[in-house]
Amino acid sequence: MSTTPSGPPVISAQQLSKHYGDFRAVDGISFDVPAGESFGLLGPNGAGKSTTMRMIGGVSQRTSGRLTIMGLDPEEHGPEVRAHLGVVPQQDNLDEELRVRDNLLVYGRYFGLPMSYLRPKADELLEFAQLTDKATAKVDALSGGMKRRLTIARSLINEPKILLLDEPTTGLDPQARHILWDRLFRLKESGVTLILTTHYMDEAEQLCDRLVVVDKGRIMAEGSPAQLIRDHSTREVLELRFGSERNTTVAAELQGIGERLEPLPDRVLIYADDGEAALEQVTSRGLRPITSLVRRSSLEDVFLRLTGRSLVD
C-alpha cells in the first residue's frame, strides 16, 4: 500500500453481466482497476468470480454491460486484449506430454515470440518459479504446487503487465501456498497489476490492495481489507464453544454482550472491540464455555456479516 496507483484504469467494468439461461452468474458488477493495483474478487464457490475472470480474459462473451482492458473491448479486439494478459486458470492446463521447459517455449510461441527471446526467458522464469532443476522433467512428475508455479511461470512468458489469477492456491498445502504468495508479491512489487479471485480470506489479506466481496453475481462491498473490516466488523471477535448441543440455546443468555452475536452450529461469535472484556462479561453471567478465543476480525467475518454465510462451506 506504499504506492497510490493513478492514471486511467487498465480494467474497467460497468454493469457487467453474464447469464446462462435464467441463471445470472454475474449480475451487473462494476469496478475499475488502476495500473499496478492488486485487486481481488473474494467470494464463495459459484459467486461468479471465475466467470468474471473469463470475461476479463477475453474468452467468454458477456450478456450485457461494458468492459475494457487497456481501453480495448475484448469482444472486438480479442487477440489484442489477450496479448496484454498473463492468465493463471483455476485448473492447470499444462501439456503433460511436454517437458517443463518446453511448456514455456510452446506457450511463448503463441505470442509470436522468437526462440532467441524465449530460451533465456524460459530459464529465467524457471529460476523465478524455483523449478530450474525440473527443467527437463515431464510435467506429470511435478507436485501440485510445482505445477501451479509452472502455470504462473508460463503466464509470465510474454512479460504481461496484467496478471489474472483464478484461485491461484486452491488445493495447495500451506507451505506451497506461502512460496506462491511470495512469488506473487514480488510480481506486485515489480509493478504488475494483479487481478485475483479467491475464497481464502488470508490470501486476500496478504495480496490485495483492494477487493470486492462478491456473492450471487453481485458486489456486496468494496474496499481495502483493513477498511472492509473496519466498516463491517468490530476490532475483535470472541469465539466461544459450548458444545454443539448448547451453542444455540446459550446464545439467548449472551444477548447484550458486545455489538453483535452470531450463533453458528459449532460455536458462537461475539463481535466486540474488546474481546477480553466481553469474555469477562460472559463469565460474570455464570456461563462456562468449553473453549474461548479472542482474535482480530478478518474478512471471513466481513463476509459472514454481509451474506449470513461463511466463505468455505
Binding site: 487497456m70 489484442e80 505470442f111 509470436g112 527471446y117 510474454n158
Partner: peptide, 8 residues
C-alpha cells in the same frame, strides 16, 4: 518481449 500489439 515485443509489445502486445506485435504479439496480437
Amino acid at each position: 518481449a515485443h509489445p502486445p500489439a506485435v504479439s496480437a
